[in-house]
Simulated assay, not measured.
Amino acid sequence: MNRTSFVAAAVMSILATAAAAAQASDYPTMARVDYVIGCMASNGNSQMALEKCSCSIDAIAEQLPYTGYEEAETALRMQAGVLGERGAIFRDPPEVRRAIEALRQAQAEATLRCF
């Protein structure tokens, strides 16, 4: 491999890493904080819970774009708050079920990695 090819490969590697980091940090700070606070409340509000919950939202962000996270979280909150026929719009559509399943899968993988 000549010097030019090596430099080009190094630059491509750096750009790919930067793109992955940018995608992982596309979650707004408030969304990350909201997740960590809820997670900590469920896990004892300790320093260890803070570390594990922070790791968890980072792992989720690596796997799921923020728009998918936001759709699933909204649907889950609405399912919890809207009962009966009116709640069907947040339970029944296949897109809603897919968004929730994607979030649950990301959460399961984050749990394996961080807890």
Rank of each mutant, 00 (worst) to 15 (best):
N2Q: 09
T4R: 12
S5Y: 02
V7A: 08
V7K: 07
A8V: 13
A10G: 02
A10M: 09
A10Q: 04
V11G: 06
M12H: 03
S13H: 01
S13P: 00
I14H: 06
I14A: 11
L15G: 05
A16I: 07
A16P: 00
A20D: 10
A20R: 13
A21R: 12
Q23N: 14
Q23H: 15
A24V: 14
A24I: 13
S25W: 14
S25Q: 13
S25A: 14
Y27P: 12
Y27C: 12
P28V: 10
T29L: 15
T29E: 14
M30T: 14
A31I: 07
A31P: 05
R32I: 07
V33Q: 13
V33A: 13
D34L: 11
D34V: 08
D34P: 02
V36E: 06
V36Y: 04
I37Q: 14
G38Q: 12
A41K: 10
N43H: 15
N43R: 12
S46N: 04
S46M: 04
M48V: 07
M48C: 01
M48G: 01
K52C: 01
K52G: 01
C53G: 09
S54W: 06
C55V: 06
I57C: 04
A59T: 02
I60T: 03
A61R: 12
A61D: 14
E62S: 14
Q63Y: 00
Q63E: 09
Q63H: 08
L64Q: 04
P65S: 03
Y66N: 07
T67C: 01
E70D: 15
E70I: 03
E70C: 02
E73A: 12
T74H: 15
M78Y: 05
M78F: 05
Q79A: 07
A80C: 00
G81F: 02
G84N: 00
E85C: 00
E85V: 08
R86M: 09
R86P: 01
R86E: 09
G87A: 00
G87C: 01
I89W: 01
I89S: 04
R91G: 02
R91Y: 05
D92E: 13
D92S: 11
P93Y: 07
P93V: 11
P93C: 08
P93K: 11
P94C: 02
P94R: 09
P94F: 06
E95D: 10
V96T: 10
R97I: 11
R97F: 05
R98N: 10
R98K: 09
A99L: 07
A99N: 13
A99Q: 11
E101I: 06
E101Y: 06
E101C: 01
A102T: 06
A102L: 08
L103K: 14
L103Q: 12
Q105D: 14
Q105C: 00
A108F: 13
E109I: 06
E109M: 11
A110Q: 06
A110C: 03
R113Y: 07
F115E: 13
